[in-house]
Design a protein around this nucleic acid. Structure first.
Lengths: 215, 215, 215, 215
DNA sequence: GATGAATGAGTCTTCATTCAT
DNA sequence: AATGAATGAAGACTCATTCAT
């Protein structure tokens, strides 16, 4: 329909906004959202709060995230993705249990300072929201399932390395390790007085008794 | 407006409602609130929802709980108290670690069916709310602190019974056990596929290796 | 559940708000809506306009009409019902065509002053809205269909009275009369210079020629 | 921001778009608008809808129509002009009443299919909008006034041809015919079951009785 | 004590229009 | 001329809480 202007290539080669810029804006909004969510919770945070914090206009924010729900979803899942990236190398190196637990929980705790937001607090908000949001629930379930599968792989390797007794079920161990790690998130978010080393030592010390117990 | 109604004496001569009745009404409202909160979350539940579910009138509900926040607080803390009652005997009997963890998590999971509401889901809601509600946060912190103190006592006894090695820190063990148990709440609420026995076995299996490892 | 108080009959016999009162409130809102709709059209009228005009609060208005669409629907259909009531006696008396058309159009035009709103203008708004609102469209179609059926009955009686020639199709006559009457609504709303008598005379004069024409 | 782009000279040297092209673009936009308006009504149609449907950019559309109101005005009045063109030959040939009414209403109904939009539905939208838009109202009034003047001329000629009795008022006949025709628009748009022939027959049949009646 | 209708500030979201590129 | 991202003032609707009866 449109007759091409001779200089139309000019425009075409200069997209209104580059993909990087779009992504940067998205992150700008997500970061504003993270900040607000952590301060006030998911529902007490108004879109106006996020809009102000982002420095953009309402329309601009809505052009990136079509609804508050979408923004919540993105805030939670993007956060999860960020976590995954940081955790992968730990899985790869497969340190022995104590160290492993310490490294995972350090990542969980450190994630915080680095990004200027607290993954642990956000996690609590996300779990709560997942209770009434099937989509978010499914996404999280999927994420934790994959995480636990990785954990089972780690347990298997521990077993092969003689770090776990032969009868140990990697699946059960994975469930226990996941619980310990998620519990660390809760405990440190609520109580604020748990260090990764303490957790790791506690797990080790809890373990030791078993030798006596079992023998 | 200031004219007294002809039947105003009526009110004054009315006998006060009995304390039992008051308590029953309170529970009736709390139960309605629990049901709604679990279905829709804390903030998506409206007072109207709770009022309808309770079968009382708005005014009646407000005469028991002066605000939604108060009701949320009561719903969460009452739930916590209920949990405490059930957990006390386990502390008292102090079974060995594996069994202990299994019993605690069974209580957490069973609590659900008995009362017709899921303590685990409510816990997630409460943790989330505590992020933005200092009062609730303080109450919870206090509760979990007491719980952890009890746990440290248990660990101490385990140590004395030779179930933990001598260098074990009861405080660290308490932190690890609390994390495990809280993590069980999260994992089973989100994933829905974790049984207390699996958790206990996983902890044991994770533990056992240490005997080999350490010796 | 609720133990009845000795004076509960007191309350029960004094419903919070009587049906009459509810109906009066509904009319109060509808009248405010009619006024606003006519002044500004359906969509340019905001709920705030209607709320202000009604003298009630937003919540009160919404407790009677759960959405703007519902209010529009009620405004249009209530108006239609009012018209039906006024038109029934004319159908019953079945005056000859000219007079009939004059009486119907007089009713249409007079409706206005009596109720303080202009049925004709509201009709235009309703027709327009029906283009994009299937529910409203269906309601209107039904109304006009019934109206036209009545008209066909009238035409049949005219025929039997020898006021229409034997070959006349009551159905076609009904369609023509309905068109004339609806057209009167449009013409008088847009031009503002058409009187029922003029319309009736015009129809008659247009008609008369036919005698010459046909003979 | 104030720095001139390197290619700013580019714009200045650009040849103006030809008038034909401008006109074609205008029609392209108007056609998009008609389509949207009919589907969704005047107010539920957003500028974005029209912009998308037109295949142009927001800026382009706004360079042809400086506001939505202007676009609505143009959509309605252009439509009216189109109708006028088609109706002129009928006025010129001045067929007898029945045939005249059939031809006019056929034009109204056929207009639809030919242009891919329904003049009748657009008319309803325009009438409704005219209630709150004095400018549109004036334009329409003027158009219908001219139409009615033409109709009066036709009636005069009918009279001279002996098709109307001597006492007939051309002005009243014009009002009646206009009403019938406008009513056809409403009836066929709302009910969807009226054919031009039926209308013409109905008018004729309604007429005949008068011969008996009057004689 | 009990009722539930009423309140109105506060929410999310839309969309006509502009303007830097 | 053309583009389309950005703006931000509205608008529809909700809901915790009150208070006249």
């Amino acid at each position: 329909m449109l007759v091409k202007n001779d200089y139309s290539f000019y425009y075409l080669s200069m997209p209104k906004i580059s993909d990087e810029k779009r992504l940067a804006r998205r992150m700008q909004i997500l970061e504003a959202a993270w900040t607000c969510f952590q301060k006030q919770g998911l529902h007490a945070t108004t879109m106006a709060d996020i809009i102000n914090a982002s420095g953009l206009s309402a329309g601009a924010v809505y052009s990136y995230f079509p609804s508050k729900e979408e923004l919540i979803h993105a805030a939670v899942t993007t956060s999860l993705s960020g976590l995954r990236e940081r955790v992968v190398p730990i899985f790869a190196s497969t340190p022995p249990p104590e160290l492993f637990i310490r490294q995972i929980s350090e990542t969980l705790a450190r994630f915080t300072q680095r990004e200027g937001y607290d993954l642990r607090r956000l996690a609590l908000l996300g779990w709560s929201e997942a209770q009434r949001n099937e989509r978010l629930s499914a996404t999280m379930r999927e994420f934790y399932m994959a995480f636990r599968d990785q954990l089972a792989g780690v347990a298997e390797r521990w077993k092969q390395a003689g770090l776990l007794r032969d009868e140990a079920s990697p699946s059960d161990v994975a469930k226990a390790v996941l619980a310990t790690v998620l519990g660390f998130v809760v405990e440190s978010a609520i109580m604020g007085d748990v260090e990764p080393e303490e957790l790791a030592r506690g797990v080790r010390d809890l373990a030791i008794r078993s030798s006596a117990n079992e023998s």
